[in-house]
């Protein structure tokens, strides 16, 4: 969690850096001449796009988690950008239980909209809202050792679980040399809305959402985007 906070801080710094660089470039452009304004007019390209969360691809080499997410959306000239994301996650957080193992896996989807705030024709900032839905199952095994009895072991888990949540999203992206390809990152804060609860051992992690112990969950996503 501490690392995630550091990463979030890094992203915020990156966002600020992107903002300051972009604003600097804009200031220079506006100072140069009024004629230049026409040529640097900021436009939002309209079109269908897909994004791939490449940060999650790195989990394919991890033993403790495996994630994949892809989004489809449409970027409108009025700066509104509706988007839907589909993903799969299998997570086995090693700190879920000190005396047991845990795995949660399933599919999730997010639907929402971004408001685009371009700095220039290369860099863009955006803010958005999401509604998330996860259909998943979890399972685990725990052990209790004894000095004079056999080690006790028991399993637990629940099938067909459902959870929903809301997200606030802040992000930025930069157009690469290829005019249609963007590299971006976004910070989101997720707020649980509803989920199934179980006793005595409750769900620990929800694919697409994160840990259930906290009322809000921060998250970082890095993606590559192709705008048709």
């Amino acid at each position: 969690m501490r690392l995630l906070q550091h990463i979030s801080s890094l992203l915020v710094i990156s966002l600020c850096y992107t903002t300051s660089v972009a604003q600097g470039e804009l200031a220079i452009a506006s100072d140069s001449s009024n004629l230049a304004l026409d040529s640097t007019r900021i436009q939002v390209r309209e079109g269908l796009f897909i994004t791939l969360d490449y940060g999650k691809l790195a989990t394919l080499v991890s033993d403790s988690e495996s994630k994949f997410a892809i989004s489809v959306g449409f970027q409108l000239a009025n700066r509104i950008s509706p988007e839907i994301q589909l993903g799969y996650a299998s997570v086995s957080p090693q700190n879920a239980f000190e005396n047991g193992t845990y795995e949660s896996k399933g599919f999730y989807s997010r639907i929402g909209v971004n408001y685009l705030i371009p700095f220039d024709n290369t860099n863009m900032f955006y803010a958005g809202l999401r509604y998330g839905l996860s259909l998943f199952e979890d399972e685990g095994v725990y052990e209790i050792s004894s000095d004079i009895f056999e080690t006790f072991s028991d399993d637990f888990g629940e099938q067909d679980q459902t959870a929903t949540w809301f997200e606030i999203v802040l992000g930025s992206e930069k157009k690469l040399r290829n005019e249609k390809v963007y590299l971006g990152g976004q910070f989101s804060l997720r707020f649980a809305n509803s989920r199934d609860k179980f006793a005595p051992i409750d769900t620990y992690a929800i694919p697409g959402y994160g840990r259930t112990l906290d009322k809000s969950v921060p998250a970082l996503n890095l993606y590559i985007k192709y705008l048709f």
Partner: peptide, 9 residues
């Protein structure tokens, strides 16, 4: 942005 996922891993 490219290095962050590997730091996380």
């Amino acid at each position: 942005l490219l290095v962050l996922p590997f730091i996380y891993l």
